[in-house]
Design a protein around this nucleic acid. Sequence first.
DNA 1: TCCACTATTGACATCGCTGAAGTGACTCGG
DNA 2: CCGAGTCACTTCAGCGATGTCAATAGTGGA
Lengths: 335, 335
Amino acid sequence: MRRPTLADVGAVAGVSAKTVSNVMLGRREVSEATRLAVLAAVEEVGYEVNLAGRGLVSGQTGRVAVVVPNVYQPYFAELAERVILALEPHGYTTMLRIANGGDAELEAVLGATVSTVDGVIYCPHHLPDHDESLQPRRPVVQLGGAPTSRWDCVVMGEFEGAEAMTRHLLESGRRRIALVWNSSPGVVPHDDRLEGHLAALRAFGVPRDDTLLVTGSDWDRRASGYEAMVGLLRSGASFDAALCVNDAIAVGALRALRRHGLRVPDDVAVTGFDNTDEGEFTVPSLSSVSPRQEEMVEHAVAMLLERIAGADVPAREVRTGADLVLRSSSGLPTS
Amino acid sequence: MRRPTLADVGAVAGVSAKTVSNVMLGRREVSEATRLAVLAAVEEVGYEVNLAGRGLVSGQTGRVAVVVPNVYQPYFAELAERVILALEPHGYTTMLRIANGGDAELEAVLGATVSTVDGVIYCPHHLPDHDESLQPRRPVVQLGGAPTSRWDCVVMGEFEGAEAMTRHLLESGRRRIALVWNSSPGVVPHDDRLEGHLAALRAFGVPRDDTLLVTGSDWDRRASGYEAMVGLLRSGASFDAALCVNDAIAVGALRALRRHGLRVPDDVAVTGFDNTDEGEFTVPSLSSVSPRQEEMVEHAVAMLLERIAGADVPAREVRTGADLVLRSSSGLPTS
DNA sequence: TCCACTATTGACATCGCTGAAGTGACTCGG
DNA sequence: CCGAGTCACTTCAGCGATGTCAATAGTGGA
């Protein structure tokens, strides 16, 4: 059974296809009587616009691609969900693309499937910075990750966040702060975070100690935080706090510390980044740097829509703030 | 700058648009020489198929809608991710729709936007069973939730899972097993789980006690598991185990028990459903019923592709198994 | 040398929709 | 009573791709 077309509706209503089209588009040059007749016919035959046809004419698709490395990690899941819901009221549906690893991400942002959408919101993970010559064929807005001049981007206040959290730890009397970081090959280095951390150390006159810098094998799995912390503990380093690069890593680290018989926060304070929902339910609950996701998403969506509407301006960079969410894991040792 | 079309490529290569089309489609009735010339021209002008145009002719979109209630909950995030990745090798891209609540879900599965895809994979949450008369206009496969004869569905072994877990608790000596369940209005009641639980109780000759049945305000938030458990504790009921309807609820329950000074598993064993990644990192780590997601997704994708290919058979129901994943939270009281 | 046949390629219609332009009928002011 | 203007609608072309079928060139056999 063929799907009814404008012409089918027109035949039933006794008007031309174009008139039906006008009714569907809510044009005013249609008399009330015809309008009702057409609507009745639409109902009767069960007509529905074919967006492929419309898109062919308009050149627009009404779709936006959202590229994330994964969704099993709460940070990206929450981000993706916010983006999808933020786009909806603007009439855009979302194509979710999962791309993890430099080439896959680049392909997802620049590649062929991109031609089926009006724009791309890109949450980076591993983007290598080679070959800036390849230009995206659709507007791209980068959400999170390291700032770039390649396209519009919204980045969180990495520096401020890391600085504030380090400062908080220092103020609580911690002096040997481990960084559970990540810099496996190809991973975007969050230099701003490191800089923020170092700035706070300097402000308190605490010397930098690179033996306290640990690196996990991957950036996002709870398991890699676990491994990283186990490695640190085995190294025999002494530390009284661990600043983790994100909540997932922190959750893994918490577990490793516990297994090792260390108490959090009494022996070691632990903090995360991203303030995911999960952190509220860990034991102990997790202090984290909260990235104002909602604000970031708002900016990203707004910029993308401007681009889609035709804005032709140089790449912009929006930097949002960061808030500390303090819970038990960074409490005073006495607690 | 207009996007190049088949005709543009043809002009450069000195052939007709149709020949270019044939090359793009990998047809054999093209001589090697022309093929190379066309490919060179494609490269030169940077041509890329316009899928809107192709879709207009073929009537297919190359897209599948995946409808989930949310992605912040790990269960759905992992499910969505698996589905997206499973569809990819078949050449389908995914439109992720977030729809929570009976009407929204129905709208997402049956509504207008559905016409922009070739099929729908639907992970239900609240679907009310009213009005079966509304027929979907695209093939629908339901993934998870309560079985239905309305369309193809893949459901997990709810009964077996609940029975096996209850049996495990009973075998560990637990006798007063609370159910942290959920049945707020409109939520699909997982009767099979309840039945499985009751069957195990009967097998052990343990009487059913409805004072141990708690209901959270919502089905998925960790916070609602917390609230539900607080309610149960306040009610003064005595229990030595809590079978939670999913991992998120279990995580909330764990926290409530801890706050209340109860030890898990010593005082109360806690178990979840869904075996999300998170459960491995809770304190204590969470025993859970694992739904063989991979298998479910495989079935769902296979059935959907058959339907899209035109299979016209009555609605099918595939029931997968369930495995117990036992961790610390349901350990023996002595541990 | 010519014909039949195959291998390539092109012209045209078509998918469903919308913009531009055109067609009557009717109204209204002078 | 006429021309201009308005209204409501229609016709037509074309978005970019592909299926159908005809046309062309080139081949081998007689």
